[in-house]
Nucleic acid binder design. Sequence first.
DNA 1: CCCGGCGGTGAATCAAAAG
DNA 2: GCTTTTGATTCACCGCCGG
Lengths: 377, 377
Amino acid sequence: MPAKKKKTTATKNDIEKYLDKIVSGDCITAMKKLPDASVDLVFADPPYNLQLGQAELTRPDNSRVDGVDDEWDKFDSFKAYDDFTREWLSEARRVLKPHGAIWVIGSYHNIFRVGTAIQDTGFWILNDVIWRKTNPMPNFRGTRLTNAHETLIWAARDQKSKYTFNYRALKTANDDLQMRSDWELPICTGNERIKGDDGAKTHPTQKPESLLYRVLIGSTNPGDVVLDPFFGSGTTGAAAKYLGRHFIGIERDKAYIAAARKRIARVKPLEGDDLQTQPSPKAAPRVPFGQVIETKLIKPGAKLYSRNKNYSAKVRADGSLYVKDGETEIQGSIHKVGAAVQKAEACNGWTYWHYEEKTGLKPIDFLRDKIRKGMAG
Amino acid sequence: MPAKKKKTTATKNDIEKYLDKIVSGDCITAMKKLPDASVDLVFADPPYNLQLGQAELTRPDNSRVDGVDDEWDKFDSFKAYDDFTREWLSEARRVLKPHGAIWVIGSYHNIFRVGTAIQDTGFWILNDVIWRKTNPMPNFRGTRLTNAHETLIWAARDQKSKYTFNYRALKTANDDLQMRSDWELPICTGNERIKGDDGAKTHPTQKPESLLYRVLIGSTNPGDVVLDPFFGSGTTGAAAKYLGRHFIGIERDKAYIAAARKRIARVKPLEGDDLQTQPSPKAAPRVPFGQVIETKLIKPGAKLYSRNKNYSAKVRADGSLYVKDGETEIQGSIHKVGAAVQKAEACNGWTYWHYEEKTGLKPIDFLRDKIRKGMAG
DNA sequence: CCCGGCGGTGAATCAAAAG
DNA sequence: GCTTTTGATTCACCGCCGG
């Protein structure tokens, strides 16, 4: 009989000193220092191993495409990439609490190898999720399909883990329809994209906060600890802080760390009630109310009013509304709460609820229209 | 030095006898009988290895969900599934012509293992494609995201294969926008769904013909040979016959074979012009710029301009251009001079240079078009 | 102030034929 | 095999600037 494996000397309390900080260094080395069973969620955006060709890619107007040619994305072979993947996944699994879960994002270059490694490591896949980009880069040579999506894998630590899934919150954010495995979100551009003094992008592959927002709302609770072993520009940290979750970041590149620290320092967390989450036609693209929150056209905590201002409701992080009317509390989707305050059977929340603007009350449908027209963000 | 590998005795002609037929039997055994390098495309819908639990799944109204519990979807372990996958993929690759390609469809249960095997077998992934279901089955228990998509992998036999990609046809089908990697299509229901006399579905996972239609339009030409080693209800055969492609089906289950034969017999192929797809400009006969001069659509001495009129060039008798820019003189082909004035690596002179018309500047490509259509002279 | 045009850009395994 | 030449090819969004 083998000797009983020596327990790691680190205790659960040791995790405290890592909370809301960025650890500088290689992700495998750094993870080895973390105690067993100490984090609730891992979100990982590992190198994709793109294997781009030698020649430069140009647009039809001859401008140059700034591809990912960073050293951190270079591996000698599939085997080298697999070895690396299996090692960091094993550490991630050890660090996870028994009921913890992991998210990994990738493209066709690496996601199949990552998914196989996830299964082989003992994780239990819950869903694969497709991030459909509203504004992907076209295929400039007309040689393949426009690569318009990336894939995320969501897996529990074990087949029997009681993983966190805020079904109601996601359903409410999706206009009372079950959240699907395909998520349509824009890529990270504009003000959200971190740039240096020279105007150049600080990180080549910065993820949009809206993506992390949905991941964290759906699969963590406030106060949970989220580990990101490939912290990069710190999107996970920014979203975690905003949503009242703790983060632990690991990053090798000093410049990325500096940019992430600065970025996260500017984030103002949601407070108290605003953090609470909730236990149609084809012609125009469907925009769920949750997306209005994700794109920050309305922030959690904001007030909405009926047109005559007879009723008001508070917006919460998942896109649910909250009304306190004397003794009774009402909460739910914009439609459900609209119906409830009117004591009606049904209600179109998009036209019933209004937000305050300089010029007066405007229906929130106006904001949905903005998103549809691409004027948001 | 090893002995030269003995060539298979089967010759290319042997493939003829398999065309538009269904071979009864195990896919690996059957593929071994096919000659090397004899098919243009493989489309495969292998078992998903669903690993469903014991308990039955019921809807909220307690009705029973008829899941996939067939014997052909049972494997003892990931290893058993991987061994099976690698074996049939190797055979598929051997049977493919050098410039052939493969499509495989799967879900998160198996697609990562299949993708890894595809890369390890020597295929070169071109795209992963997401089939977004307009009408997926909901997640009845509210325990996960609605599994609303399946994943296809499109890969060339080799990295250097000149695979077939009908870019124009797909772009035209997509309202003149590049076809993206996410395809929204309904699942197979209604009349298209094959049912037995008892009204029960004949095959548990019948794919919609619209999916195969797009695959075949995009990555084969009329007359090509498409092999489907997991023929099932014969969707690949039906779409191939309809679109004027040949199919070879392999299927183990006699009942599926019978249903597929009956189904395919009823298909009426498209004919003649209806089969035409948007041709690539590449297919148009080459017209050198000199010919534009020869046909006197432009005369030597005429001036050409860049679109914004920043640059102008003089046409010479041999079809070369001449630019004098201060001290420096540039001369050469329309492409070279276009690149030189822009200080770019390359330039398509046909679209860069314009000539003057009453109505304004027009690209000289317009003149080439005239010649191609026989409107010149 | 609004509108339109123009320039810029995003995880990209991004050419093929002729000589 | 190689190198050179020819020529095919982009969508959604942001921000700036000029009218």
